[in-house]
Write a protein that binds this DNA or RNA. Structure first.
Lengths: 283, 283
DNA sequence: CAAAGCTGTATTATTCATCATACAGGTTCC
DNA sequence: GGAACCTGTATGATGAATAATACAGCTTTG
């Protein structure tokens, strides 16, 4: 007899309405059904509908006008930063210079088994672990946990880490980085990440796990990044390659990625378009 | 007087413990603190701790043994499918795993403004909209919503859509697909997606929004995909290209798919330990 | 074996989200 | 202006999640 944990009705209503909005069912600028109507439709009280709408309003998805109604906010004005995957790290390095970094934690110790394994460390080898938050325009958008073998980490100071891109520091130590693997996934915000990113616990997050290798194959950096999906997303252009028999999509390389291509014709789907404000790498 | 909506303490504990586990703070196979200890540590009742552990157990992250304790399940055995970003679906077929498709919805109508805009449709032009769920080994892992211009959609039947890849059908209609853009993000599962993917409402999801263009620049397919992060994740290998002055990371193309590194590197996991306590639960 | 610790389970009290209802005040439309 | 909407706000009642406590049965340790 388990009571099925039906997590907060308000949350359910919130997610339902959110889906309708982003799916375009409720067009931007349109008015959504009144609170009594919504309450009846979903068989909940108006108070609950109200709390769902509070969440939507806080996310900027709707705008409420007393006496008039609740309207779908034109979300196309606020778009997340788009990071081009075809050009990942240089993009991040660029960003490392135009954004602020807050160093939350810094120290040395024995890594967990999984970290040690992915870096190819011998048992007992120590690592430097750091936790940073990156902010753009003063707003946090990424929560970065990095592990670096101790012998590399010792070549720079805590202050340097807070000021310069980690990869630059690694290369300065004499290591050459040649290959990297990364995986993208999604997760929920735990207490620490939620606090650092100014989010509610349980908010969705984009995750990026990247391991950078030196030519010999040993790992020199293990990065685990959490991104706020409303402020950051990955983007890539694909081109069709191969012959008829074996046709694939491949990332478009070396293609003129002047960011103005998104200003006229948006190709971002979902919450596309019209880059009113947002990103400019300078700020 | 807003009561800050502190969604379910059990959920908070669940997320906290989950983070510790995937961060490696609690090593696989290790025993985590007893339920009374956890209850005291987080100032909640044992019942609540219990419900958090129920969630962890349902996710397969821990294994409980009556009379003995709760142990971190060796999660390295069950890893999500890793999809190479440059070769998304053919990869699955290579693995010899059977993917089924369930067609949930099929029909024609006027698209939302954002869809119409991203496909480059004229006002009033109609689209075919379909919702499908893809399963691997009988388990759902993706929820796909596609929009295709009507003149293309009419060239194939509902039954064909359920049986063959959409892109194949589009090309069969005479259209050549050459270019595409896609964006990756994260979101929470709404009621429909949650039901289709056999998840709780509010679970994290990976999203992929892809728009495929024909040479003339008109959009021929708008795909919005939701993936279960525990069963699917994106992976890519990067190589360093360019000269000293302008060094960049680019996706490695045509890489050998039998690379074993992807099977053990895709582990996400980690997060700082900061408090340093815990983790010494040996045996 | 016995003690100590653990998970599994049940019971009751308390706290908090939700409900149902009512009313104030703004907006829209006739 | 006035009727019919709407959002904003407050009230007490109800129900669900959590807290506090107790005990059974199993596992490990000495």
């Amino acid at each position: 007899m388990k009571s099925a944990v039906e997590p907060l009705k308000a949350r359910r209503i919130y997610l339902l309405l959110r889906d309708r909005i982003v799916a375009g069912e409720l067009p931007p600028g349109g008015r959504l059904p009144g609170e009594p109507a919504l309450a009846a439709e979903h068989a909940v009280s108006r108070v609950t509908v109200r709390r769902a709408l509070d969440l939507l309003e806080k996310e900027g998805l709707v705008q409420r006008k007393a006496g008039s109604g609740t309207f779908v906010h034109d979300t196309r004005a606020v778009r997340p930063i788009v990071a081009d995957l075809s050009n990942v790290l240089s993009h991040l390095i660029d960003m490392g210079r135009s954004t602020d970094v807050k160093l939350l934690s810094f120290g040395y110790g024995i890594p967990s088994e999984s970290i040690a394994e992915s870096l190819g460390l011998k048992p007992g080898e120590r690592v430097q672990r750091s936790v940073r938050v990156r902010l753009i325009d003063g707003e946090p958008f990424s929560y970065l946990t990095t592990h670096v073998p101790e012998w590399i980490g010792l070549t720079y100071s805590e202050a340097e880490l807070a000021a310069r891109p980690l990869l630059e520091l690694i290369e300065r130590s004499g290591v050459t980085t040649e290959r990297a693997t990364q995986a993208i996934n999604a997760t929920l915000a735990g207490p620490e990440a939620a606090a650092a990113l100014d989010l509610e616990i349980g908010s969705p997050l984009l995750t990026l796990t990247r391991i950078v290798y030196e030519p010999s194959g040993r790992g020199v950096e293990h990065l685990h990044a959490l991104y706020r999906p409303d402020r950051y997303s990955f983007h890539m252009d694909l081109v069709r390659t191969g012959n008829d028999g074996e046709r694939r999509w491949s990332p478009a390389l070396g293609w003129p990625r002047t960011d103005k291509s998104k200003t006229d014709k948006s190709k971002l789907g979902e919450k596309p378009t019209r880059s009113t404000r947002a990103i400019k790498q300078r700020s």
